[in-house]
Design a protein around this nucleic acid. Structure first.
Length: 450
RNA sequence: GAGGUUGUGGCUCAGCCGGUUAGAGCGUCGGAUUGUGGUUCCGAAGGUCGGGGUUCGAGCCCCUCAUCCUCCCCA
C-alpha cells in the first residue's frame, strides 16, 4: 500500500472550501457579466510553441512541460540527447505545456477565431493555470485566474471600466482594497528623462521594489545593474514627484512620457463620472513583470493584509501580433482567486450563509418504512427541497448523529405510524421541537422557509 | 536557482544528554432497557516513528526524499 500525497503546491478543496471558492467565482463572474463580458474556455494544455517566449526567460522556466506520448526518446536527436542540455532537449521531447496564464491562450483564441468574433470583443475566463514556481504562502503551482479582457479597441474608457469591475467585485466580497495604477509609458518617460531609455526594463524591475526595499535599495540595485550615478539621480528625482501631474515638466523631452500622463488623465476623467468604493491610487513604482504591457497597468492590494497582489492587469497594444494578427489593442485584468480566498479567510469575511444545503434528513426503522421514506424523499425533492434519506434503516441514534454532524436542520422520522397516516414526524434540530403533519403540509412549510 | 523548517496512529501534536513494552487530545468503533442526536460516562481498535545508513542500541546522530516557509519572480 502506498501513502497518498499531493504534488507540491497543489491542494484539495473540501466541501466548505469548495463552496467558498464558488462564492468568489460567482461574485466575480456576476460582475463580469454585468459589464458585458462573454465567457470562453480554452484547454488546460497548449502547444509549447504558443507559450514559450511570451513570459520572458524566467517565465519559460516556470512552464510545466508535458512529455510526448510514445517512445519520445527514440524521436529525440541523439546528439542533443547526449549533450544533456535540457533547454535543447525539451522541444524534442515535449511539444505541449500547461497554460501559464489566460491571456496568451486568449490571444491565440482571438487569432484563430477572428472570423467569428465581433470587435471589440469582451471576454471573461475563469480557469486554472499552472506555474512551476517554488510554492510558498499565497503562491501555488495550480491556481485559478479570473480574467476579463477587451480586445480590438484602444479606448481608455475600458481601463476605467475594468477599474470599476475591480471596485465592485471587491466591494461585493467585502474586501477593502487599493487599486494601484500606473502607465508603462510613464515608466518609459522616466527612463527617457534620465537618458537610459535603452535600459528601460532593467530600470522598471529595480524601481518596482521601491516600497519593499526603499530608495536605498533601489539605488543599490540600479548601481549593481550598472546604471550611471547621474542617471540614478535623474530617476530618483522623478520618483519623488508628488503627483502624476507634477511629472509634466519632467517629461518635457519625453513624448512617450507625456502620452502616458495623458492616458492616465483620461482614465481619471472617466472615473470622476462614477462613485467608487475603493481608492484608486497612482503609483509610479508599479511596474508589473509581464513584458507585453504597453499602456496603463493595474494592480490590486488588499488593505491591511500581508499578501501579494490579488489582482493585476493592463493594456497591451499588440498581443496578437506574435500570432500573426497585428494592430489589435487589448486591455484586461485578472483576479487571483486563490489569494482572494486567503485574504477572505484572514479577514474572516466569508458570508455565513454559505452553509450546507441539505434541509431534511429522513430516517426510517425497517425496510417497509424505508421504502415509504424514499417515496417521501422524492416528493420533497420534486418540490425543490434538498433532502436526504439515511441509507440504512434502524437505530435512530445513529441517524440523528449523522444529521447533527452534517448540520442538517430538520430530521424527519418515518415509522409505522407515519407510513399508515401519510405523515412525517419532523424535528427541528435546533430547537428540539417536533411534530407530525401530512407530508404535503411539510412540503409547503419547508418550501416557505427556504 | 539559494537558504531555512518540519516529517511520530485518520487529524493536531508530546517524546529530557540516543538505551528496556512510543504518549495525549480529537476522531473512529462498541456499550449505558433496541422511536431520537449534538452534552456525559464506560470500553476498544489503531503508530515501530517518510526512506536508507551509522551504532551494542536511534523518534532523537548522518544521508536522502517530501513538505512548508524566505529570497528571486509572480496571482
Amino acid at each position: 500500500m502506498q501513502k497518498p500525497s499531493l504534488p507540491e503546491g497543489t491542494r484539495d478543496f473540501g466541501p466548505e472550501q469548495a463552496r467558498r471558492r464558488a462564492f468568489i467565482f460567482d461574485t466575480i463572474r456576476s460582475v463580469f457579466v454585468k459589464f458585458g463580458f462573454q465567457p470562453i474556455e480554452t484547454p488546460a494544455m497548449e502547444n509549447l510553441s504558443t507559450l514559450t517566449g511570451k513570459y520572458g526567460d524566467e517565465g519559460d522556466q516556470l512552464l510545466f512541460k508535458i512529455l510526448n506520448n510514445g517512445d519520445y526518446l527514440k524521436a529525440a536527436d541523439a546528439e542533443v540527447l547526449a549533450s544533456k542540455n535540457s533547454a535543447r532537449l525539451v522541444p524534442q521531447i515535449a511539444k505541449r505545456g500547461l497554460r501559464y496564464d489566460l491571456t496568451v491562450p486568449f490571444a491565440r483564441f482571438v487569432v484563430m477565431n477572428r472570423h467569428a468574433l465581433t470587435f471589440p470583443f469582451k471576454r471573461y475566463q475563469i480557469q486554472p493555470v499552472w506555474r512551476a514556481d517554488r510554492p510558498q504562502k499565497g503562491r501555488y503551482r495550480e491556481f485559478y485566474q479570473c480574467d476579463a479582457d477587451v480586445i480590438g479597441s484602444d479606448s481608455l474608457h475600458y481601463e476605467a471600466e475594468l477599474i470599476q469591475i475591480y471596485d465592485e467585485a471587491f466591494a461585493k466580497m467585502n474586501i477593502p482594497v487599493t487599486i494601484k495604477i500606473n502607465n508603462r509609458k510613464v515608466l518609459y518617460g522616466i527612463a527617457e528623462a534620465a537618458g537610459v531609455a535603452d535600459r528601460f526594463v532593467d530600470m522598471t524591475v529595480a524601481i518596482d521594489k521601491l516600497d519593499k526595499v526603499g530608495i536605498e535599495g533601489v539605488r543599490k540595485e540600479l548601481t549593481e545593474r550598472g546604471f550611471a550615478a547621474e542617471a540614478i539621480a535623474g530617476i530618483e528625482t522623478t520618483l519623488a514627484a508628488p503627483s502624476w501631474e507634477a511629472l509634466r515638466p519632467v517629461f518635457s523631452n519625453s513624448e512617450t512620457g507625456r502620452k502616458g500622463l495623458d492616458e492616465l488623465e483620461r482614465v481619471f476623467q472617466f472615473l470622476k463620472k462614477t462613485r467608487l468604493q475603493n481608492a484608486v491610487q497612482f503609483d509610479i513604482t508599479l511596474a508589473r513583470g509581464l513584458t507585453y504591457y504597453t499602456g496603463c497597468i493595474l494592480e490590486v492590494a488588499a488593505n491591511g493584509v500581508q499578501m501579494g497582489s490579488i489582482g493585476g492587469g493592463g493594456r497591451y497594444a499588440d498581443l496578437t501580433g506574435v500570432f500573426g494578427m497585428p494592430g489589435l489593442s487589448g486591455v484586461g485584468i485578472s483576479f487571483g482567486a486563490d489569494r482572494i480566498y486567503d485574504v477572505l479567510e484572514m479577514l474572516e469575511r466569508f458570508p455565513e450563509t454559505l452553509a450546507d444545503t441539505v434541509r431534511v434528513l429522513l430516517m426510517a426503522f425497517d425496510e417497509p418504512t424505508h421504502a415509504y421514506a424514499f417515496e417521501c424523499l422524492c416528493r420533497l425533492r420534486a418540490a425543490g427541497i434538498p433532502a436526504e434519506l439515511y441509507p440504512e434503516p434502524g437505530k435512530l441514534k445513529k441517524q440523528f448523529e449523522y444529521a447533527a454532524k452534517c448540520n442538517i436542520p430538520f430530521a424527519a422520522i418515518i415509522g409505522e405510524t407515519e407510513m399508515q397516516t401519510g405523515t412525517m414526524t419532523v424535528k427541528d434540530q435546533q430547537t428540539g421541537e417536533q411534530r407530525s403533519m401530512p407530508v404535503e403540509e411539510w412540503i409547503e412549510a419547508l418550501s416557505k422557509q427556504v
